[in-house]
């Protein structure tokens, strides 16, 4: 066994002390403390309790997510005194699952993925903060086809959603389409799931889909960065507002740490030059506290749209 894997085992043991049953706890703690003590003599490195494991739903390319997170990660390290480890993933459901199986401590979730996480953790996952703009979020319907001018024109066309469990790229647009009397499975010629918001734009720009829908914030970012030609791909409808993204912690995280994390987010101020980069990358004017009840509307919409059973 190499030194690294030994250390990992030891750390895992130390960490599992907090969660396993009293009987096995005694045994594994003795074992792992022995290991950990022995190892910490040779390496002055962090123990498991000092690592904050963070991830985010892959609503944009994973490389982009990592770039966006880097300065925020450093800031959280400074604020909590813990090592922050960001794991990029390529599947929405795996973030929810990892939070539920306590393989993640903190995750950036969409409104609907939060509801999924809440249901899978028997209501223990706690949303702590959200961006000010997440309280009145919208989705943009886009097309490159001159013949499409309103939602009604989508009949018989190929349409791209983002990921199936995306709030702004799937659930809420589907809900509002339904209210406009459109059933995607019946009325569209083909329904595709691009997987991510930026991919939806690529689908529509390339003509792979006649129209698509995405998160307003990512759309604005792509337009500002000139990644999309607004003369070619245009917005032809916008949804009403709803609650979206938040930062969620698993329910059994140390309350003191939860408080520290919440305060760290709320302290972020775009006028502070040290925070400016973080806020710009997160596309946040300000972080505000959030609570579970904010997402009841999403849960109802998910039931109505058949995404929750």
């Amino acid at each position: 066994m190499s030194f690294l894997s030994l250390r990992r085992t030891a750390l895992k043991g130390a960490w599992s002390c907090a969660w396993s049953s009293p009987l096995s706890r005694a045994f594994s703690c003795v074992l792992s403390t022995t290991l950990a003590t022995g190892l910490s003599l040779s390496a002055a490195s962090a123990s498991a309790a000092d690592i904050l494991r963070v991830s985010a739903i892959p609503d944009e390319a994973p490389t982009e997510l990592q770039r966006k997170f880097a300065p925020l990660g450093k800031y959280l390290e400074a604020e909590t005194g813990m090592k922050v480890q960001f794991t990029p993933v390529s599947d929405y459901a795996s973030v929810v699952e990892s939070l539920a199986t306590r393989k993640l401590d903190l995750a950036w979730l969409g409104g609907f993925t939060y509801v999924q996480a809440k249901l899978r953790t028997q209501g223990t996952a706690i949303p702590i903060v959200q961006r000010e703009e997440d309280a009145r979020f919208t989705s943009k319907f886009i097309t490159a086809d001159p013949a499409i001018k309103s939602l009604g024109d989508l009949k018989g066309k190929t349409f791209a959603f983002g990921a199936p469990s995306s709030t702004s790229g799937s659930l809420m647009p589907r809900f509002f389409l339904q209210q406009a009397g459109l059933n995607p499975e019946k009325d569209f010629r083909n329904v595709a799931f691009s997987g991510a918001h930026d991919a939806t734009v690529a689908f529509v720009a390339a003509g792979k889909a006649d129209a698509g829908v995405l998160n307003a914030s990512v759309w604005d970012k792509l337009v500002e960065a000139k990644k999309v030609d607004p003369d070619k791909v245009r917005v032809f409808a916008t949804t009403p507002t709803y609650f979206d993204y938040n930062w969620t912690v698993r329910g059994d995280l140390d309350p003191a740490l939860v408080k520290k994390l919440t305060e760290a987010f709320l302290k972020l101020d775009p006028k502070n030059p040290e925070h400016a980069e973080i806020m710009a990358l997160q596309r946040a004017g300000k972080f505000i506290p959030t609570r579970k009840e904010n997402y009841d509307g999403i849960e109802k919409a998910a039931h109505a749209a058949g995404l929750l059973k």
Partner: peptide
């Protein structure tokens, strides 16, 4: 996006 069973499975698994 080639339709068939795969798309159904992908969507249903994503939604748990």
């Amino acid at each position: 996006g080639a339709g068939g069973l795969g798309q159904l499975l992908y969507v249903e698994l994503s939604l748990f």
